[in-house]
């Protein structure tokens, strides 16, 4: 098992109006991306409570992709700017905790950008694969609870 390629688990937060539809479009157009990402639909990227990201990372996710409408194109006028602020806050907090801030990525994708969504997922999976398993909170990759005890230190 150990010799196998590490398959990261990624949670993706999508906006109902743009990036969720970009993901739909990627499907309708039969574009292909790796199955490592599991999506959650929010009404807006502004709904993203930083707690969600930490919850995902401590529950077994190795990376989190936050997606929203392009700046200036928010369905709710300007709430994606608030997501942008929180994104920076989350990264700083992660750094303070000794977790690679690059485990969280922000992607703007409009409803027309199925191809962009696909490419961003592909590259993010590779980025997280390169970072290796996070194993935070006693959870292993693939989202399965592992039997090992909580590690004494988090990988930096």
């Amino acid at each position: 098992m150990n010799n196998e390629q590490f398959e990261p688990t990624i949670i993706g937060f999508t906006c109902n109006w743009c990036s969720y539809r970009a993901a739909d479009l990627a499907g309708t157009a039969r574009m292909k991306y790796p199955p490592n990402i599991r999506l959650i639909r929010l009404m807006c990227s502004g709904r993203l409570d930083p707690t969600f990201v930490f919850k995902a990372l401590t529950n077994g996710a190795d990376g989190v992709m936050i997606t929203g409408c392009h700046p200036g194109e928010c369905h709710y006028l300007e709430q994606n700017y608030k997501a942008l602020r929180r994104f920076h806050l989350i990264r700083r907090t992660l750094q303070g905790l000794g977790v690679e801030p690059n485990r969280v990525k922000l992607v703007w994708a409009s409803a027309a950008e199925g191809a962009k969504f696909t490419n961003e997922v592909k590259s993010f999976v590779e980025e997280i694969r390169a970072l290796g398993p996070l194993n935070w909170g006693g959870a292993g990759g693939n989202g399965h609870r592992v039997e090992t005890q909580i590690p004494e230190e988090v990988p930096a």
Partner: peptide, 29 residues
């Protein structure tokens, strides 16, 4: 809803409980 530090604001359809539970479910916790 996401901004309230006291957790006093709730959003129907997309509540904290719903999203946090979905995360747990997606990660098979």
């Amino acid at each position: 809803v996401a901004a309230c530090p006291a957790g006093a604001i709730s959003g129907t359809g997309f509540s904290n409980e719903q999203v946090l539970a979905q995360i747990e479910g997606l990660l098979l916790m």
